[in-house]
Amino acid sequence: MDSLRIEATSCSPLIDFDPAAGLLRIEGESYPENSFDFYAPVFSWLEDYLKDPAPAVVLDIGLSYLNTSSIKCMIDVLEMLDGAHQKGQTVSVRWHYDSDNDRALDMAEEFAEDVSLPFEILAH
């Protein structure tokens, strides 16, 4: 399976998914013109990948700001991974946030509330 890499812009994050290592990184800010178009390749890549993923998969997120349509996309990404976790695959989330930004922590905690997979929130 090919890796997926989309470079960051000022309003869309870096997407860097390494299938062999099981490391899926999303980093930056997310308020693109059309979030559903932006995240469409992410959804289709994950759908394929989760049929036969690496032994351990980590979603590594460093998102300092998401608009509401990006939040919806991230909920959908987390639900896909949570589904894999419930089927017995080893999947976890590491969510990084800037300790000056309380809103980023609130957001991470709300995402964590809705999933059952291991979800680590790390201050920097």
């Binding site: 559903f36 509401t68 349509s69 939040i71 919806k72 909920i75 959908d76 809705d114």
Partner: peptide, 22 residues
């Protein structure tokens, strides 16, 4: 907010219906 965020996306919609609630 939680209820709306769990709803499936409407086809062709550009938003998630979360903006006003947020």
């Amino acid at each position: 907010y939680k209820e709306q965020s769990r709803k499936p996306r409407e086809a062709g919609a550009t938003g998630a219906g979360l903006g006003l609630i947020d």
